[in-house]
């Protein structure tokens, strides 16, 4: 028997311990999967609705007032720059004074928080549609928020994580490149990235500081 064989036997013996009954079954897995998918869709729908509201403000500003001069379709192109400017101003106003997301309100922290992800996609649109990385489901204080995504930055693939820690909870050291910023709600945001393996480049490594800075007023 080789050393590898002996080690394999030892590991198999260790894993042969009679396990306790599983704490999850097929129905629970499927229900959790569907719940996460529904939350994700709600977040996307919410973002789309917010965009429609902002766009609607801009369009409303560009429309003729009752009793005023009618704007024919032929005149629309002339009005378009003004409407676009108004819409842009409205969007800038929304962007300039965002309402901080703040601590989570669920009983347990959401490790794939749809609201945090929606904010992240605002400041780092390249991660829209990225696959969620696997996270655990054990219960942590609900004030925390997290997002972990399997991302690709050009040809550089890896894991991007964003952690929001509520006021009073300090951020610990991280492995790999990361950026930390104090948020508008008094909490802390930690943006980290790492490549596929040791020594490999981390995606968005040169944008972590800017991402944390952009997230800070929104969280």
């Amino acid at each position: 028997m080789t050393d590898d064989d002996r080690l394999a036997a030892l590991f198999s013996q260790a894993a042969a311990e009679t396990p306790p009954p599983p704490r999850f079954d097929h129905d629970r897995v499927v229900a959790t999967s569907r719940r996460i998918t529904a939350r994700r869709r709600s977040a996307v729908l919410g973002g789309a609705m917010a965009l429609l509201v902002v766009t609607g403000v801009g369009v409303a500003v560009g429309l003729p007032r009752p009793g005023g001069d009618a704007v024919s379709s032929a005149a629309a192109p002339a009005a378009a720059p003004e409407a676009a400017a108004e819409a842009g101003a409205a969007a800038d106003a929304v962007r300039a004074a965002p309402v901080p997301l703040g601590p989570g309100t669920t009983e347990c922290a959401q490790r794939q928080d749809p609201q945090l992800r929606a904010v992240l996609e605002e400041v780092l649109p390249e991660v829209a549609g990225a696959v969620e990385a696997a996270v655990t489901t054990d219960c942590r204080p609900g004030g925390e928020r997290g997002v972990s995504l399997e991302v690709s930055d050009g040809g550089t693939a890896g894991l991007l994580t964003v952690e929001y820690l509520p006021p009073g909870e300090p951020a610990g050291p991280t492995s790999g490149p990361s950026a930390v910023a104090a948020t508008a709600s008094g909490g802390t945001v930690v943006v980290g990235s790492r490549g596929e393996g040791p020594g490999t480049p981390a995606p968005f490594a040169d944008r972590l500081d800017a991402t944390a800075a952009d997230l800070a007023p929104r969280l």
Binding site: R23, F24, T32, S33, I36, A133, A134, V135, T136, T137
Partner: peptide, 10 residues
């Protein structure tokens, strides 16, 4: 179990 469940959910 948390990790295994998370992997199956993913």
């Amino acid at each position: 179990d948390d990790h295994a469940q998370a992997a199956f959910v993913a």
